[in-house]
Design a protein around this nucleic acid. Structure first.
Length: 604
DNA sequence: ATTAGGG
DNA sequence: CCCTAAT
């Protein structure tokens, strides 16, 4: 699991520190002990294990600074934090340190080391993590003698220096950690010697590394080679490896205060923008909200960051090339977020299963599908999740009527006569069959008012009383058309109500009267009883009608199955009106409109 | 607040 | 149907 004494001896000799045993893969047990070793950089650049004195000093400092110590940035991150032995760079956590000092379980690793090094310092459990205490101007204590100087713990904590096997080092902190970085930071680098330390004070961020360097860094970070030549990819990987409890999404990575230095600043910006809104969004279905997730490029981040990482580490095809030939990721729309939330609600509250972990979102063929695990014949498989909760209220409410209304009625209606006022009896009849429904007839009054609005096309199956009128009748200010499943009403999304033929007719009529685009008017004057159907709805419907009427070759069977056939005379009307509205010869069309409406008035 | 358009 | 931008 960790290097033996000899290893360390060598390590010290060479001043080369390598993270071996980078068992990234399997052993990410949460409980894995992670300890850190303190070393000091001697004048010649070699690393010398810290002495007891130094340890004590550091300990004191730690205790002192415990208050203002910026342990881990984000509590959440801390909780989810999984030690990753493979990554050389870790945020140094106080706990680790304390454990280190308190623990007496040190292995007998002292033999080969300088005699003054006692067991405590040699404790190396878990990951081999070395923190360098450079011989620099970081004076902590006047009591320290000679060249023994320790970096103040605070600085130490924020400025872990990474040594990689090839001697290349990365200024991880500048690149990744923002903010609290000490201004003196440059000094740190000078101390860490070893010739090929390419690190120059204050500089050398990932951004400036060549591909080759990045590859090497990658190897140093993950303990394995990569063939990727994609700088961006490499940088991302490395960064992630280094912070290692933080997902680095396609776009960028986010840390704590959401600002990073270096690298792809634009991407970072994009991401943080997209992320802020996300705070309300998903936790459980943790498909990162990159639209890729839904669009189905399926980068499939469904797993633990590290895992995912490793899995994809070699495939540069997954990611766009360095020079943004990539499609830019779009900020998730509000709608998407909403829908995501809905899914969550479903997951959280409506799923019977007690084991939420069995539910997950998988992306398949471009769609994110919520699935759950089921046991079948001993093996576990994933099936699309289907809510077992009853979707609608158990009758007794208007729903029955609603169904009746919008489906059967409208379609079946084959009224013999256009007299609206005669309808009520029939209606209430039907209505009364439904338990719990108040019979309604108030609206009839209104209806007569609207008479003048009545169709120009009174020819064939004109209407019997509009079913919708019923709705507006009685108590219904409503949208209390009750069929809506709770989830939906919660989501605030309007339930879909198919347009009835008569609605369409009214719409067409309205357009012909008031003109295309006058939706407010049309709504007010022709659609007042229809409490649903906003002006936008009208507009949308009109748009659809126009589309349908123009591509009017639907006779052959192009007709949509679900939707009812729209009487051709209506379509014709639509086409005519649409033509008039088209930019060509506005004037003419306007004139015609006037003429038309006049004649209509005459007609009515 | 309305409209036009895109999703 | 929803969302946004533009008026």
């Amino acid at each position: 699991m960790f290097g033996n004494v000899k290893d360390y001896g060598e390590t010290f000799q060479d001043s080369i520190f390598q993270t071996r045993n980078g068992s990234l893969s399997s052993t990410n047990q949460i409980g894995n002990p992670v300890t850190y070793k303190l070393v000091r950089v001697a004048g010649d650049g070699s690393l010398v294990p810290a002495t007891d004195e130094e340890m004590l000093e550091v300990k004191n400092l730690l205790e002192k600074n415990e208050q203002d110590m910026p342990v881990l940035p984000d509590p959440i991150q801390t909780e989810e934090y999984i030690p990753d032995e493979g990554s050389p760079s870790q945020f140094l956590q106080l706990e680790n340190f304390e454990g280190f000092f308190q623990s007496e379980t040190a292995g007998p690793y002292t033999e080969n080391l300088n005699s003054r090094h006692e067991s405590k310092e040699e404790l190396m459990n878990g990951s081999q993590m070395l923190f360098v205490l450079p011989d620099t101007k970081f004076q902590i204590s006047t009591e320290l003698s000679g060249n023994v100087e320790l970096v103040p713990s605070k600085v130490l904590l924020q400025e872990p220096i990474l040594f990689s096997s090839n001697g290349c080092s990365i200024n991880q902190s500048t690149d990744v950690l923002n903010a609290t970085a000490s201004p003196k930071e440059p000094a740190l680098s000078t101390a860490a010697s070893k010739p090929d330390f390419s690190r120059v004070p204050g500089e050398i961020s990932l951004a400036n590394l060549s591909i080759k360097e990045l590859q090497e860094t990658f190897r140093a970070t993950f303990g394995r080679e990569t063939t990727s030549k994609d700088k961006r990819w490499l940088k991302r990987r490395i960064k992630m490896g280094l912070i290692n409890s933080c997902v680095v999404p396609t776009t960028t990575l986010t840390i704590n205060d959401s600002k990073l230095i270096g690298g792809d600043q634009d991407a970072i910006d994009a991401f943080s923008k997209g992320t802020v809104d996300e705070e309300t969004a998903t936790e459980s279905i943790d498909t990162p909200a990159s639209p890729d997730g839904i669009k189905g490029h399926s980068n499939d981040f469904g797993h633990s960051p590290v895992e995912t990482f490793v899995d994809h580490y070699s495939g540069n095809e997954d990611f766009e090339g360095e020079d943004g030939s990539a499609k830019r990721v779009r900020k998730p729309t509000r709608r998407y977020i909403e829908e995501t939330n809905e899914k969550q609600q479903i997951d959280g509250s409506m799923i019977p299963s007690k084991d939420p972990s069995s539910i997950q979102a998988v992306s398949s063929e471009g769609r994110v599908v919520v699935t759950r695990m089921v046991s079948l014949a001993g093996s576990r498989i994933q099936v699309p999740y289907v809510s077992h909760v009853r979707r609608s209220r158990p009758r007794e409410n208007i729903m029955a009527l609603g169904e009746f209304r919008s489906k059967s009625w409208e379609v079946k209606a084959a009224p013999e006569e256009g007299n609206l006022n005669l309808s009520p009896p029939q209606l209430s009849n039907d209505v009364n069959r439904v338990p719990g429904v108040k019979s309604a007839s108030r609206c009839v009054q209104k209806e007569s008012d609207k008479d003048h609005l009545k169709p120009i096309f009174t020819d064939v199956d004109q209407e019997m009383m509009e079913p919708e009128l019923l709705d507006s009748s009685g108590d219904s200010s409503d949208d209390n058309f009750v069929d809506a499943p709770i989830t939906q009403s919660a989501s605030g999304r309007k339930l879909h109500r198919a347009w009835t033929i008569s609605e369409v007719e009214k719409l067409v009529e309205g357009v012909s009267k008031y003109g295309v685009g006058k939706w407010t008017e049309i709504k007010k004057l022709s659609f007042s009883p229809y409490t649903h159907r906003t002006t936008v709805d009208l507009k949308d419907k009109w748009r659809n009608l126009q589309k349908a009427s123009s591509s009017n070759r639907m006779e052959g069977g192009l007709k949509k199955h679900g939707s009812m056939a729209i009487p051709t005379h209506i379509m014709l009307q639509v086409r005519e009106l649409a033509q008039k509205q088209s930019p060509i010869s506005r004037v003419v069309s306007k004139a015609r409109v006037v003429k038309r409406s006049r004649s209509r008035n005459g007609f009515l």
